[in-house]
Design a protein around this nucleic acid. Structure first.
Lengths: 144, 144
DNA sequence: CGGATATTTTACGTTTACGTAAACGTGATG
DNA sequence: CATCACGTTTACGTAAACGTAAAATATCCG
């Protein structure tokens, strides 16, 4: 029998690929977010582990705590079984969706402000005279 | 002469409006993000302060640190003057924009996964049989 | 006027998410 | 065989963002 070709990764491989430290990866394991197999003492990461790491980091970029990410992982693993669990999972998913949609709105708002500020910068640069103060729109950061 | 009707806020008013603690608001001041005037010892917040608070909280929802927000505030306040400052400001703005766009992509990805998970939940619930395991798509969280 | 209520300063405590050694295997390699 | 290069556990340290409690005003209200 041939061993089924299982794609695995070492900790440093993952660390390099995702540009995090091995310390961080071990920490995620400590927090119950990953659990790689072992070959002797060495950690061996599966494709699933890799995917989870990707999700952890994506969550982080969105300001999620490791605890929140873990909750989602756990629910994902255990939710199918009882109806109650499924409904609970759905509630959590809906809540997360609400947060994400709020973030979308926040991003739109910040992008608009960035654009305005950048435009003003370019105007000042083009103009060459570094003296004139911009009239501040009511809701601007540069208010009264 | 009439006093110009200056809209001001107490700390608790702001705290209630934005659903944060007064402690948090004072902390933001400590970190140089706000500086309300004083009437005696009491803090008096202007509309500008209120706007800044709003921006602080928006930044927080997007995972920005107070330090990052402060940097933007400071640049916004001081950038117009020298060309070098303006260009530096533009760099920071571009960088922030990059992060925001990455976040937009992240959000899209997570929303898609949430939708998939929710759909699966609904399918299981509709089906009524709480036993069948879902076949996991390659990049799913529920991989091998 | 005295108690309730709000505000202030000061200061120590807490959680999250790692960083930073130290001290120890272990397999490959010149 | 000694020395890397990589991996492991254990443990203490740290920055961020407040929480929480204490003690001191200040203000309002019946």
């Amino acid at each position: 029998m041939e061993k089924p070709k299982a794609t695995t990764y070492t900790i440093t491989e993952l660390a390099k690929e995702f540009n995090v430290t091995t310390r961080a990866i071990r920490f995620y394991e400590d927090q119950g977010l990953l659990n790689p197999k072992r070959e002797g003492r060495k950690r061996v990461y599966s494709r699933r582990d890799r995917t989870r790491l990707k999700l952890i980091l994506r969550g982080k970029r969105l300001g999620m705590t490791l605890g929140e990410t873990r909750e989602l992982f756990d629910l994902f693993d255990t939710a199918r079984g009882e109806e109650k669990q499924l409904r609970h999972f759905l509630r959590i998913l809906a809540e997360r969706r609400r947060i994400l949609e709020q973030q979308q709105r926040d991003i739109e708002a910040v992008l608009a402000e960035i654009d305005a500020a950048a435009a003003e910068c370019h105007r000042l640069l083009a103009e060459g005279s570094f003296r004139k103060a911009p009239e501040a729109p009511p809701e601007s950061i540069a208010g009264p």
